[in-house]
Write a protein that binds this DNA or RNA. Structure first.
Lengths: 352, 352
DNA sequence: CTGAAAGCGCTTACAG
DNA sequence: CTGAAAGCGCTTACAG
């Protein structure tokens, strides 16, 4: 018996020949367009199966001058430049796939204003768009937005925070709980079991809270057996002065605090205060590869920064849309970013 | 004054029209092929400049059925499965660019045999090849190989270890010195200034020595002020028994050793011994994200693993050739991989 | 040294 | 419901 010969590069022409139809009809079936009799459709589908037909993406993109429009909907924050990194990743992706006919439109909203999110999501909806990358910071508002997208059959991917069961193409972002857990793990090596730990949440933006709480949860879980070691403060202002005051109070009120865990990039505010105290007495762990934080890291005021590749989140988010829309390739439902540890020794090699 | 109008997508046709020649002639100039009078050549080059002509890669790859052949020349080692990771990265790159007409041929050599390297590099030279990715483990042999490549004008990139000034397209790999330095930095947080440290080199392969020495150097530099804390042993056999014997001797001979730094993935051998001793008394730091090591990490026998993205080295190496050969894009001369810290808490999220 | 023509594997009107 | 033809922006023989 002869082995089934696998035509290596059979194309539409070969399919048409075998089905005794024109290539236009084959094209209609491939793209599931209407106007083909069920019978010929079936026949052609069979042949496509048999031949294990793989469309030539080059030819496809070249022939169809159609361009694909992606929209990005992410925050701008006056608090941090965190979102610059995903934006850079988006840019990188755009540069890479522009030649394949992808255009990217960027929309921004204010993390302190749900109204701005609603406004911008409406603008996206009004535009001609084939796929969307968004940070669903406001949950309710995001859900009604994605519901509208579902109706129009437009795929969307979430980055940085997830809303499960919303039928997003995928989620790409951090595992907050485990990043907090890692912070605790590092600390456990550096301080004595009797030392106390100060946990600091610094944020003005209401939205951020569940983010920070999730990290705190992971952190606390590590010290579950000795929960009383942990002192926790919330600071709703993000300037050096406010942070200094609150942290100073906490340190004065609780003797024996040897380590401080700041649940976001605001660790620089705490570093600023610790530095003003002179002698380095505390282990300081916080988040994010930002210029300011790196300065403190170099000087030894910050000991460890935890970071989850914000730039790559943007890059991968765009590429997921591209894979799905251009190559019809399957996409992983959930991608957690690695949880990276940055120190004064390895920061220069870090890739966001 | 009218702003200079930038034709957005001017192609060969437009260039030909302006130069009053055929597109075939334009094509000749674009590819620097002979058979064009200096005068028309100059004229066409000017127009290309003016128009800021960007070739359409899709059309180019589609029209020229020519396929590009890449060759990979890397070690296989019976000692570790380290090289599986770069190989996986190479595979990933191949899957991504296959549709653009790239074929990859793989050649392997034995790290214990210069002869095998020579033999395989000759095989590469004999094959039809447009670009090469190699690990220049044997320096002299690599130099004569790349000299031959230079003559044939075939670009090559180095991964994992570099030979400077060899006109490679680029180098992609670890910064060994700083990875050792980082190991020391981590240890400095976890042990007391009076504690002693055992540094262990485990390798049978002659080639590896300068690799390990460089890491050791970085490690020692961190403790330059207290060099006497460091005890160092070399082990030339890579089985559990040999390692056990040597490490046990060292621990017996030097009281107060609290931490062990193993300069490569052989940390699993040391972990095996420590585990057999029962109670965990030593901080253990080593290298590489290998299954065996991760098991010890999970159990807490190994505390930190340092890793420099071996898979990405393979991926990026191939992509550098692709960027250079297909897109004629500039390539960074040197890319150091990030120096990652892996612990029991974040290992599940690690991407090689 | 130069150009006309065919073709890469698709998609897109258009005609029937 | 179906097909013939033109075209995407290049490259490749071939002819002169």
């Amino acid at each position: 018996m002869k082995a089934k010969q696998q035509e290596p590069n059979a194309g539409v022409k070969e399919i048409a020949r075998r089905a005794k139809v024109s290539i236009a009809t084959v094209d209609r079936v491939i793209h599931n367009r209407s106007g083909v009799s069920p019978k010929t459709k079936l026949k052609i589908e069979r042949i496509i199966q048999e031949l294990n037909y793989q469309p030539n993406i080059l030819a496809r993109r070249l022939a169809s001058r159609k361009i694909l429009n992606f929209a990005i909907l992410i925050p701008v924050s006056e608090e941090t430049d965190f979102w610059e990194a995903p934006l850079a990743g988006i840019q990188q992706a755009e540069d890479e796939i522009r030649q394949f006919g992808i255009k990217i439109e960027r929309y921004f909203f204010d993390l302190n204003s749900k109204a701005s999110f609603i406004k911008q999501s409406k603008a996206v909806l009004k535009s001609k768009v084939d796929g969307i990358l968004l940070a669903p910071s406001f949950i309710e508002e995001s859900v009604s937005f994605t519901n509208a997208l579902k109706e129009k059959n437009i795929p969307y991917v979430f980055i940085n925070s997830d809303i499960p069961n919303q039928e997003s193409l995928c989620y790409i972002g951090p595992d907050l709980y485990n990043s907090g857990h890692l912070g605790a793990h590092l600390m456990s090596y550096c301080i004595d079991p009797k030392d106390k730990i100060l946990v600091v949440n610094v944020s003005r933006e209401i939205e951020n809270h569940h983010h920070l709480l999730r990290k705190e949860e992971g952190f606390r879980a590590y010290f579950a057996d000795s929960a009383k070691r942990i002192v926790k403060i919330d600071i709703q202002q993000t300037n050096d002065r406010a942070v200094e005051k609150k942290v100073a109070e906490a340190l004065a009120a609780h003797a024996g605090i040897k380590a401080i865990f700041v649940t976001n990039s605001r660790v620089s505010n705490v570093a600023h205060y610790l530095e003003s105290r002179g002698k380095k007495e505390h282990l300081l762990v916080g988040y994010d590869y930002l210029r300011e934080n790196i300065e403190y890291l170099k000087k030894g005021t910050i000991d460890f920064l935890i970071c989850q590749k914000p730039q790559e989140q943007g890059y991968r988010g765009v590429m997921a849309l591209y894979q799905h829309l251009v190559h019809a390739a399957p996409v992983d439902k959930v991608t957690f970013m690695p949880i990276d540890i940055i120190t004064k020794v390895n920061h220069a090699f870090y890739k966001n």
